[in-house]
Design a binder for these strands. Structure first.
Length: 442
RNA sequence: GUGGCCGUAGCUCAGUUGGCAGAGCGCCGGGAUGUGGCCCCGGAGGUCGCGGGUUCGAAACCCGUCGGUCACCCCA
């Protein structure tokens, strides 16, 4: 195939986010930022790539993400690096490096990279919003983190989603449970699907969330981790459930919920959209990772967090027809059929006055320019032709709503446009979203 | 990594048994002597993804390849 047909194309599994969809992304980020900053979380930017060991240690060598999905590369200095496949490990790495005072609550918005075969709701570069909270082992922190995600989804208007909850135990009780599970599964080895028959020794937990009917049948009778938690883990889990109940957050217990990263301990949770037809309907998930800081060389420090998939979340919003975002319209569109110098100067004048203004180029016909003005969504057209130039005036033509056009003196244009447009100058509350962080990082 | 389906104009797609490359939308111009939306007329725009094969003749049939999409695996 000639280069031309593939070179101008986003790499497989990646996509462009152009206006007006990009407006929606910014609004989503702003809504998230406002919510989590209002709960004491501070923005953390970390590099988009890290020493590959940051991911290997925490996520686990045996996981699919580390084993076959990482974008690994060597830089010119021979360092082994990887594009981040998820958001937690880098933030925890930053914590270990800088040791901010505890408790430390951070949020992030970042692209994440995994080399997988793309499909609906799954991309090689996707984007995650998330929080991490380090320090407290308090189950109420688990409740806070879960409720932040849940409240965020509700604030967007989502209603058709489910929260599933589980406890993975900790170093005190999980090893014994794993032996129990392995023993049970071994008895039924021949009934498992081929892949999990193979995997039984490496990670028997994985069989629990297998979707194949044969595995389902076996694991239905398998010992449940929830029944084999040590006392501290059991108490922790009970308090998390009680806390969610007290806050009125519905959830279902799912002892099959085994998340794919090794660092999880105790509470794990996942949100899935019930409105999404696609196979990939998980819109967010997370859990506690009380050993991760140590794995990355820090002092024993509990932690918990979640990640939300931006693309999937927006798909879920579409499926429920919620979170529409209308672009802010222009105040004025300058139509110049008198040579163009007036358009050049007048557009500049309007913009300096803080008004949102655009114009046509290339000396197009008046009909064509007005067509563009209409499509731009501008509230008013500012028309300059030979007559206006001769008279030192402009014609203001409302493009939306009622009211006829009128003629105003050139030096009264700003006031007239501001009046006709119902003034919505740049700098109002809407553009303060920038304070939430650079949108370009998402 | 494995499998199903699909690649024709900027977009959505027709294209009969193999016989001149099409429509709608969008874009540009005109109807309107200075006026957007609705309507009418005209115009620009395509190596039918790419390569090979079959044939008098291929967008169509065959093989390969690249790309897209959906599903499995796994995950946001």
């Amino acid at each position: 195939m000639p280069d031309d047909s593939t070179v101008a194309r986003a790499p497989s599994g990646t996509h462009d986010v152009l206006w007006p969809e990009s407006t929606r992304w910014e609004s989503l980020l702003a809504a998230f930022a406002s919510r989590v900053e209002g709960a004491g979380y501070g923005l953390a930017h970390t590099p988009i790539f890290e020493d590959v060991r940051v991911f290997r240690r925490g996520i686990g060598e045996a996981s699919d993400v580390v084993g076959k999905e990482m974008y690994e590369f060597e830089d010119r200095g021979g360092r082994a690096l990887a594009l981040r496949p998820e958001g937690t490990a880098p933030v925890v790495r930053a914590f270990v490096q800088h040791r901010p005072p505890l408790p430390w609550k951070a949020w992030y918005a970042t692209p994440a990279f995994r080399y997988e075969r793309p499909q609906a709701g799954r991309y090689r570069q996707h984007h995650q919003l998330g929080v991490e909270a380090l320090g407290p082992a308090d189950p109420d922190l688990d409740v806070e983190v879960v409720s932040l995600a849940e409240g965020f989804f509700r604030s967007l208007g989502l209603a058709e989603f489910e929260l599933r909850l589980n406890s993975m135990g900790d170093q005190a009780c999980r090893p014994a449970y794993l032996e129990l599970l392995r023993a049970y599964l071994s008895e039924h080895r021949d009934e498992l699907c081929p892949e999990h028959r193979q995997r039984l020794d490496a990670n028997p937990l994985r069989a629990l969330d297998c979707k194949r009917p044969e595995c389902r049948a076996v694991t239905a009778g398998a010992p449940s981790l929830a029944d084999h938690l040590c006392d501290p883990c059991r108490r922790h889990f009970e308090r998390v459930r009680a806390g969610l109940g007290a806050l009125g957050i519905p959830f279902v217990l799912d002892h099959r919920l085994v998340r794919g990263f090794d660092y999880y301990t105790r509470t794990t949770f996942e949100f899935s959209s019930e409105a999404l037809e696609a196979a990939q309907n998980g819109i967010g998930g997370g859990g506690r990772y009380d050993g991760l800081v140590e794995m990355l060389g820090g002092p024993p420090t509990p932690g918990i967090g979640f990640g939300i998939g931006v693309e999937r979340l927006l798909l879920a919003c579409d499926a429920e027809s919620v979170f529409p975002v209308a672009p802010v319209p222009l105040d004025a569109y300058v139509v110049d059929v008198a040579g163009g110098t007036a358009a050049r100067d007048l557009t500049d004048t309007l913009r300096r006055a803080g008004l949102r203004a655009d114009r046509a180029f290339d000396d197009r016909s008046m009909k064509s320019q007005l067509k563009s003005a209409d499509r731009s969504g501008a509230r008013v057209a500012v028309i300059i032709g030979p007559d206006e130039v001769a008279g030192g005036v402009v014609t203001l033509r409302p493009l939306r709503g009622s009211g006829g056009q009128r003629t105003v003196p050139l030096d009264g244009v700003v006031a007239a446009v501001r009046d006709a447009a119902g003034h919505d100058p740049i700098g109002d509350d809407r553009s303060r979203h920038d304070a939430a962080g650079p949108a370009s990082t998402v």
